[in-house]
Simulated scan of single mutants.
Amino acid sequence: MYKNFFKRVFDLNLALIALPFWFIILVIIGQIIYFQDKGPIFYNAPRLGKNGKVFKMYKFRSMKMNAPDLRNEDGSTFNAEDDPRLTKIGKFIRKTSLDETPQLLNIIKGDMSIIGPRPDLPEHRELYEGNEERKLEIRPGVTGYNQAYFRNTVPWKERIQNDIYYIDHFSCCLDIKIFFKTVISVLKREDVYVVQSSGNKIILSSESNKNSNGEM
């Protein structure tokens, strides 16, 4: 009952309650983003949703205009604190996770949930192996089990397995634990950036001009 009905009810109610507060963030952050380089406020990118349906996910733009799309060797998006593609306000909203707040709109539309697997790029579906496509069984989330407990400290493939663990242990109690653990992680600004190993290569994706302006 929780999975099929109450989770959506909770998502929608909490998103609608948070929406007026988000408008305040939009007015303040939106102006700073625009006046730093006169570019768009939002970064909208295709993502894989429930059952593989592609939707447009909303974020505040944190990178400079026409930034190249860099990927790690495993296909995941490059993310580092000293990334020169980030704007000044972009570094701040990444560290504070304010860049993710426009996804309230995705929750209201029904594309996303508050808690769930973080959505991958559409082309990542071709890289799924074994049971990894199972992460598409439920709506993706603004935060999730992996983001709350590991954030960016584990490789992409391990994140997918953490997402599948969440699906297999799905419950209201687990969602509550993830929610409060996320709040603590965001306040402490823990593990925001991927720790790059010396052998991990950075690749310029051929999709950079099509999709993403380099954003995650």
Score class of each variant (00 low, 15 high):
L14P: 00
N51T: 02
I24E: 06
L105I: 15
Q103I: 12
N51C: 00
R94F: 04
M57T: 08
T77D: 03
I203S: 06
I24R: 09
N131G: 07
A18G: 01
F78I: 08
E207F: 10
Y149E: 05
I93N: 00
F23Y: 14
F170E: 02
R8K: 11
G39T: 13
N79H: 08
H169C: 11
L174V: 04
M216P: 00
Q103E: 12
C172Q: 01
M112P: 02
Y43L: 08
K177P: 02
I115E: 01
R151M: 10
K177N: 03
F92H: 04
L48I: 03
I89Q: 05
K95S: 08
L26G: 06
A18L: 11
R85Y: 04
G39L: 13
N72K: 14
V27K: 12
I107Y: 00
T143Q: 00
E126G: 07
G49K: 01
V192G: 08
S76T: 06
P20M: 12
K50P: 06
E190K: 15
Y2S: 10
K135D: 03
L48N: 02
S198G: 10
E126S: 13
K59P: 02
G75W: 03
R118W: 01
G144T: 14
D69Y: 15
R139Q: 12
R139S: 15
V54I: 12
N209L: 13
M216L: 14
I138E: 07
R118C: 02
L98F: 11
L136N: 05
T96I: 07
F150S: 08
Q161Y: 13
Q196M: 08
K53H: 09
E81S: 09
K88N: 13
E73Q: 15
K38G: 14
F23A: 15
R94D: 10
F55Q: 06
T101F: 14
Q147V: 13
T96D: 06
Q147D: 04
I178T: 04
R85A: 00
N209G: 10
